[in-house]
């Protein structure tokens, strides 16, 4: 069973669009698209936790910051992009492993509060540990080092070139996450989300799998952070602030938590809307908050979830035809309103 053209066609169009952005778009749209892609990676990781495993983390900025700082520190020492990114990702994964081990003992709001506290701890650590992090000045002069691939060395110092690196990594990260969500591992996460008790009573060690989801989310946050450092060339404590944790949360809520594409579309909308309103008003956060509330209340299940729901209605009707009750008593229930 291959992918249907209904899936392939939009993907091809989107990729074609993305590949040509630096050609027709100019510097700022290119930069903005990189920002969107970073948020896509960040939010996809976050939603593996929320939408797929049922865990709301308020501390993801902590892992983003670990990725950003470690990649910056490496790049300031060794001018190898690959080393910087991989180092940042692994560091974030390691921190997520340790903090996740402690966090997944709790669930629901207690889990959320604990992740918030850990995020705040990382924030103050970044502030205080001047010798390493540069305190409130942050780390400056991070080089956009060349990408060394065996024999070739690709110069990425121009944002237009760096764009293609981020695009390639993002496409790979999205594809990988898609595979995870469709795999037995992804189904295991979803089972835990739906009922942790039932999951235990089919034999799933729930905590361990929550930890796996937490680490994957941490790796994705770290990847987004690690790619940000060479883009901005400076890393400051703001990236570890809990307000920054809200970005993937809002993007995901806008797009929809129960659909794979939710965080992707949500990231585009979030940055798009933000970009427009910061030009119109100083108090962009208030407006952003208002817009998010309208979107979340107006599109239950997110923008993508709602639109898919509309498209699905026809198929539902067709499917109902095909289902004939097998046992005489097994009448189909009337459709619950969605």
């Amino acid at each position: 069973m291959g992918m249907s053209w209904r899936l392939v066609l939009p993907i091809v169009l989107i990729l074609a669009f993305l590949v040509t952005v630096p050609i027709w778009g100019g510097r700022y749209p290119t930069y903005l698209t990189i920002q969107i892609m970073l948020l896509v990676v960040f939010a996809l990781g976050f939603n593996l936790l929320l939408g797929y495993t049922g865990l709301l983390s308020f501390g993801q900025a902590g892992f983003f910051a670990v990725g950003a700082y470690v990649s910056a520190l490496i790049l300031l020492q060794v001018p190898s992009l690959l080393l910087g990114i991989v180092g940042g990702v692994l560091a974030a994964g390691l921190v997520a492993l340790v903090l996740g081990y402690l966090s997944v003992r709790l669930t629901e709001i207690y889990f959320s509060m604990l992740t918030l506290s850990f995020g705040m701890m990382i924030y103050s650590l970044v502030w205080r540990w001047r010798a390493v992090t540069g305190g409130d000045d942050g780390l400056t002069g991070v080089p956009r080092a060349p990408l060394d691939l065996l024999v070739v060395s690709i110069d990425l110092s121009d944002v237009m070139n760096y764009y293609y690196f981020v695009l390639a990594v993002t496409v790979a990260a999205v594809f990988l996450m898609y595979r995870i969500t469709k795999s037995p591992l992804g189904l295991t996460f979803q089972a835990i989300r739906d009922s942790a008790t039932r999951a235990a009573f089919v034999g799933i060690p729930v905590r361990r799998y929550r930890l796996y989801a937490f680490v994957i989310a941490g790796l994705y946050a770290g990847l987004a952070g690690a790619m940000l450092a060479p883009l901005e060339r400076t890393v400051t404590p703001i990236y570890s602030h809990w307000i920054y944790s809200a970005e993937p949360i809002l993007a995901t809520l806008i797009g929809g938590i129960y659909v794979f594409a939710g965080p992707i579309v949500g990231a585009v909308l979030f940055i798009g809307i933000k970009e427009i309103i910061v030009r119109l008003t100083e108090h962009w956060m208030i407006w952003m908050g208002g817009i998010v509330i309208v979107l979340v209340l107006g599109f239950r299940g997110g923008v993508v979830g709602t639109i898919l729901g509309w498209l699905d209605k026809d198929q539902e009707t067709a499917r109902a035809e095909e289902e004939k009750p097998e046992a005489p008593g097994a009448k189909r229930q009337p459709e619950a309103g969605e």
Partner: peptide, 8 residues
């Protein structure tokens, strides 16, 4: 459960 790449 740990199979993470092939489809479920």
């Amino acid at each position: 459960n740990l199979r993470w790449f092939g489809g479920a």
